[in-house]
Simulated assay, not measured.
Amino acid sequence: MATKATKENDQIIKENNCEIKMGLPCVLEAFTSIFKTGSISNKCCGELVVLGKVCHSALIKRTLENPLFKDLSPAIIIVKSIQTWNNCLTLIDSPPSSA
């Protein structure tokens, strides 16, 4: 079953170009704020919101499936990822217009 989830997440990530929407510094910042401890800057919050919730969720789930992170509690990580997402939405009052 885990393999199927990985394939779905990979598919979502590929279809939405999730991995190229955020710069590496912000990816690391978001990662640290969710998987370790730390805060995410306004700039990176902006990038996270542009990335979108679908990408955000898929990337978190895929990371959780990595054996390197097997000691982490998925429940805690999901809560932290939602908190980070919501904090960023609050910080970024309105997403930048794509026009």
Rank of each mutant, 00 (worst) to 15 (best):
M1C: 08
M1K: 11
A2Y: 10
T3F: 14
T3M: 03
K7D: 13
E8G: 00
E8C: 01
D10L: 13
D10I: 06
I12V: 10
I13S: 14
I13K: 15
I13W: 14
K14G: 05
E15S: 15
E15H: 11
N16C: 09
N17F: 04
C18T: 00
E19M: 07
I20C: 01
K21N: 06
K21F: 02
K21V: 00
M22T: 11
M22L: 11
G23L: 10
L24D: 08
L24N: 06
L24R: 01
P25A: 03
C26D: 00
C26Q: 07
V27Y: 01
L28I: 02
L28N: 00
L28S: 02
L28T: 03
L28G: 02
E29M: 02
E29I: 01
E29Y: 09
F31V: 06
T32W: 04
S33I: 11
S33M: 00
I34Y: 07
I34G: 07
I34F: 04
F35H: 07
K36G: 06
T37L: 10
T37F: 14
T37I: 05
T37E: 15
G38M: 07
G38Y: 10
S41T: 06
N42S: 04
N42W: 01
N42T: 14
C44E: 09
C44T: 05
C45L: 14
G46Y: 11
E47L: 08
L48R: 11
L48V: 11
V49I: 15
G52D: 02
K53S: 06
V54I: 09
V54L: 08
V54F: 06
H56A: 00
S57E: 12
S57A: 05
S57H: 07
A58W: 06
L59Y: 00
I60L: 05
R62E: 11
R62V: 05
T63S: 03
T63W: 04
T63Y: 01
E65F: 12
E65C: 14
E65M: 11
N66R: 09
N66H: 12
P67V: 03
P67N: 05
L68S: 09
D71N: 14
D71Y: 01
D71F: 05
L72P: 03
S73E: 12
S73Y: 12
P74E: 12
P74Y: 07
P74F: 13
I76Y: 03
I77R: 13
I77Y: 08
I77T: 11
I77P: 03
I78S: 08
I78G: 05
V79L: 04
S81P: 06
I82V: 14
Q83F: 12
Q83K: 15
T84D: 10
T84I: 10
T84R: 11
W85T: 06
N87D: 14
C88M: 03
L89H: 09
L89Y: 05
T90Q: 12
L91G: 13
I92N: 08
D93F: 02
S94R: 03
S94W: 11
P96N: 04
P96M: 04
S97Q: 03
S98P: 06
A99H: 15
